[in-house]
Design a binder for these strands. Sequence first.
DNA 1: GTACTTGTTGAACG
DNA 2: TCGTTCAACAAGTA
Length: 278
Amino acid sequence: MPELPEVEVIKLSLQRKIIGLTIKKIQILSPKSFIGNPNLAQGQKVLKIERKAKLLLINLDKNLLLFHLKMTGQLILEDGKRFIGGHPTEDMMGKMPNNHTRVIFSFSDGSHLYFNDQRRFGWVKIIDNGKLTIDNLGPEPLEKEFTWEILKNNLLKHKSMPVKVAIMDQKVVSGVGNIYSNEACFNAGIDPRTKISNLSDLQFKRLHLGVLKSLKDGIAHGGSTRAHFRDPEGHRGYFLDYAYVYGRDKHPCKVCGTIIKKISLGGRGTYFCPQCQK
DNA sequence: GTACTTGTTGAACG
DNA sequence: TCGTTCAACAAGTA
């Protein structure tokens, strides 16, 4: 599923492709997937594309289009020959729209942007410019505002929580979900069950670097995944190929060979290496 | 039929 | 009010 790195990769692709184009028409195939009045966007130009946490923002003249891909959302741009998207599956190679297409954006130059979402968890929203209020998001991990001291400070609001759960709080650091919080704990060499109050400064520093490494790895691999999305073999394993622990229970640790364990923390699957993470 | 998966929201707890 | 846990959400897989 798309997490922060995938959304970042999609943002970079779209920036190269649709800035300056005018929206001709928005077709809604699944009413639940679109919030607001799609007619508002008609005739407006794409000015700017941003990402906040896992949200993708497309700035128009007067309005703002917000996308959340959740688990299975894809954004696919078809400009005659190429597709650009996220969460690659075989059906991306077929014709658009397909039976998972929820919303179609048509541009003035004849290209189309397809919002596909197999499980319909994701959504598109249209709001007035300047009406976006994000008051429940912590620092962007890829900006320089994200320091280990800030991370420590924010985590200390959850003294009794296991570190793996606390780091998924969007107010602590925005955009880190289950996969990357598992990977970040591994990178930091910290047992995901460790309570925040028991972490040393050294561990906070390692955690900070661990979060960054997991996200940067993700962006690097998200990019390479995208380049290979035409390979039908690639669609299922694209996260697990590079993950150290996520989804690898009962498999040997890539570093020390110890069998990866899976437990449940905060109601989510939690994976760790009992040897590397103390 | 059951258990489990995703991020976010909101309810309900002490 | 705050920290925390948990159910709900849609729809699929094993």
